[in-house]
């Protein structure tokens, strides 16, 4: 970015440029980020095609991909990691937490089958990125973060990005958010030793809950919890990758 700013300085003269540079530098940055984001969406689309066997679909919901293309991931990433914001990797965001790999965020969001009239609960706000993606797709997102500074930061970021339909609460997500229950969908991004019974209760019949299992940087598997209209709970375990287990040749 810098050499570019300098060349403009030379071309245009100091007094004029001083006022332009600040906005131009921002605009150039944003443009570059936009370009990178568009490229990332292409990467995810390709990955999904490669993984189609596992996901039982050739492509994710176009609305989800649109949201992925719209939400500015770099805003949710600390300043020093921004240049890596649109790589398809998880990134550290401080406090021992991470922002998930965009590909995983896309798949998890798609698994929730979000609709514009949906009310979604997220346990483990982290950077706020997943909440922002969901906010693009549903009516309202309620998100709970246990680490205070993270929750505060996410709240500020979400205000900044104009996601006004997200409500952030700082506290223990185990008991869900009773006042707004039941939810059409729930994401539990904070690692859970088990599925908290209150969350199962707060899931609407016909609702879906997604839980990524693994370490902070690596999602080992995704668990989809479904509650039937009769209230029966089943879980579905899946790999986020197209890897044919067992003995191959399937």
């Amino acid at each position: 970015m810098k050499p570019c700013c300098h060349s403009r300085l030379c071309l245009l003269g100091i007094s004029f440029v001083l006022c332009v540079v600040s906005s131009a530098a921002g605009a150039i940055g944003e443009q570059e980020f936009d370009r990178q984001r568009a490229a990332l969406v292409k990467v995810i689309e390709q990955d999904v095609r490669d993984t189609s066997l596992y996901l039982d679909k050739e492509a994710l919901d176009p609305r989800v991909m649109q949201a992925m293309g719209k939400v500015r991931r770099h805003v949710f990433v600390p300043e020093y990691e921004r240049r890596l914001a649109y790589r398809n990797h998880p990134l550290p965001i401080g406090h021992g937490q991470t922002i998930s790999q965009p590909y995983i965020v896309a798949i998890m969001t798609d698994m929730l089958k979000p609709r514009p009239d949906h009310k979604v609960l997220e346990v483990g706000t982290g950077s706020g990125y997943q909440a922002a993606v969901l906010a693009e797709l549903v009516k309202r997102v309620y998100t709970i973060e246990i680490i205070e500074p993270l929750g505060e930061r996410a709240r500020t970021t979400l205000l900044q990005t104009g996601h006004n339909n997200v409500e952030v609460r700082i506290g223990d997500g185990y008991y869900g958010w009773k006042e707004h229950a039941p939810f059409d969908a729930i994401v539990v991004t904070a690692a859970a030793g088990h599925i908290p019974p209150p969350l199962i209760q707060q899931l609407k019949p016909g609702g879906r809950m997604v839980i990524p299992v693994g370490s902070r940087f690596m999602t080992q598997q995704l668990v989809l919890v479904e509650k039937s209209y009769e209230g029966e709970v089943t879980t579905r375990q899946m790999l986020p990758v197209r890897f044919v287990p067992l003995t191959g040749g399937h």
């Binding site: 990955d47 490669d50 080992q220 990758v241």
Partner: peptide, 14 residues
């Protein structure tokens, strides 16, 4: 080799 090809698509944990 199979897992390595999948590293971009969440295959690293494998």
């Amino acid at each position: 080799p199979e897992i390595w090809r999948l590293r971009g698509q969440g295959g690293i944990p494998l």
